[in-house]
Simulated scan of single mutants.
Amino acid sequence: MSRPGYGGGDLPAVFPDWSPYQDLESAARAYLRDPDVALEALGGVLRGASVLGFTLERFVNEVNGVWQEVVVCDGSRLILWHGEDVPPGEGPPGSMTSSLRVVPVSTVTEVGCRRRLNRSDSGEIRVDSIDVYLLLTSLDEAPPSEEMAGTPRHDALRFGKTLDDGGAGQIARLEEFARLVASVVGRPML
């Protein structure tokens, strides 16, 4: 099964696994559709800073096409790159957006990690999904719902992986990323 991609080429419905790659460039080249766009944007901000950890996400939306994300932690910042195909009718065919966001780690107030565990008949426990959130001091820009009217909500970054969407390797790498961010939150910056 494949789906139409940026520039007219077909994309596989199941993407290659990035989790075996320990360096950002190799992982991005294995997994992202547009690694050069992502790496150029990230490199302009990193400017030689060490990449302590990262996580990647990519999926195909039936309306907008490919959605891609890279999140890098250099110890003091989270650098997020997001690339997304422009919906039909909102730009020339093959158009995409590329956006960058830099979040100081000092603005992360809470790191949450929820793992769903599955116990086999033999008693072996395995992780079959993980959800991670990073609560920020900034406020969410989304308009409040009726029940939340007048109540500000803090911005949060959310990431998830399952056995079907990423596999055990990507689940482990996302958990590793969450632990890295948790280890630097609240520490004095040198």
Rank of each mutant, 00 (worst) to 15 (best):
A172E: 01
L117F: 04
S95E: 10
T109A: 04
D140S: 15
F54K: 02
V108Q: 10
S95M: 02
D74S: 07
R116Y: 07
V72L: 08
Y133C: 03
T151A: 11
R119D: 06
Q68K: 04
A142L: 15
L134V: 02
G83E: 11
A49M: 00
L52S: 10
W67C: 04
G65N: 10
R116D: 14
A149S: 14
V71D: 11
A156P: 05
R173V: 01
G53I: 02
A149D: 08
L135D: 13
A142I: 08
E141P: 15
P88T: 08
R114V: 11
Q68N: 07
V86F: 09
E147P: 08
I130W: 10
F159Y: 15
G83M: 11
S98I: 04
S120N: 06
K161W: 07
T137I: 01
S138L: 12
T55D: 12
L134Q: 03
D155Q: 15
V102H: 13
E147S: 10
T162H: 12
Q170Y: 00
C113F: 00
R115L: 09
D155F: 09
R173L: 01
V70M: 12
P92F: 11
V60I: 09
H154V: 00
A49V: 00
L139D: 09
R58V: 06
L56D: 02
E84A: 08
Q68H: 05
D164T: 05
V127M: 03
P104S: 03
P87A: 04
V51L: 04
G48K: 07
E141M: 13
V127G: 02
D165K: 15
C73W: 03
T97I: 05
P88Q: 12
S99P: 01
M148I: 04
L163G: 07
G65R: 07
T137C: 05
G91T: 06
P92I: 00
R77A: 08
V111R: 03
D131F: 14
F54S: 00
S95D: 08
S95W: 06
V72D: 08
L117G: 06
S106V: 10
P152S: 12
G89A: 09
R126D: 09
G65A: 05
A142H: 14
S50N: 03
D121T: 01
R116P: 00
Q170L: 02
I79Y: 03
S76K: 15
V72R: 11
